[in-house]
Design a protein around this nucleic acid. Sequence first.
DNA 1: TTATATACCTCCAAATCTTATGTATAAGTC
DNA 2: GACTTATACATAAGATTTGGAGGTATATAA
Lengths: 114, 114
Amino acid sequence: MNTSNNSSLLKGSLSVIILRLLEDRDKMYGYEITQKVKELTAGEMAITEGALYPALHKLEAEGLLTTETQIVDGRARKYYSLTKTGHTEAAGRIAELTAFLDNLNLVLKLKPSL
Amino acid sequence: MNTSNNSSLLKGSLSVIILRLLEDRDKMYGYEITQKVKELTAGEMAITEGALYPALHKLEAEGLLTTETQIVDGRARKYYSLTKTGHTEAAGRIAELTAFLDNLNLVLKLKPSL
DNA sequence: TTATATACCTCCAAATCTTATGTATAAGTC
DNA sequence: GACTTATACATAAGATTTGGAGGTATATAA
């Protein structure tokens, strides 16, 4: 993950980003996730495939995601969806991340909450 | 670094936290940093020493911090301050982090900007 | 005397990320 | 027809960061 110009930042948030996107869309494939994040951040945040695919596989191994492969236009797409456990875990991890971000903002002396 | 109840989060922000604190206070020692972060976050965020000291040493090696040791109450304190380069670099890294946080919030669909 | 607070430090293991590389199909361009 | 770009998946090597455990030492409070 990186910001427009340079370097990497904030390791640990990728899996939460994935879970958050799937909460809203309930079915996405890897490439779609990279494009959606680019779109949402006006191209400023890019998710690298070398980080994304291992993260997806891990979430699947943890039982938070299930997969379903489809052939579209002659190319294979692997769709990921939240499992039941995935839904509850997503809520928890998102809450945990936002709590952390609130604390980080406190230290950085920005707004106290979101 | 962790949030109140459990697990670790958000690798990459520690050095920026250090730089940010030193922007305001212009002279702090390691233990003081751990206490200040606890204080600012009402005990919710804890910086571990195993992460803090290597981070301080790295920032010093990068030329962003200088040290000055003092004996206070019979105990040695190693004070860290921002160098000239440290000041400019701090501004840049903080801006980079806040830009990232803005983008992260966009994806998580919280407020668009701090 | 024993525990807690203060104050520094290092090493190891685990986790996450970047970069590079690889495979393959579809579509657009020269 | 050849080449590049977009789509779509994947892995491997290396770097970085962090947490946890452990270590040293002094001052203070119980």
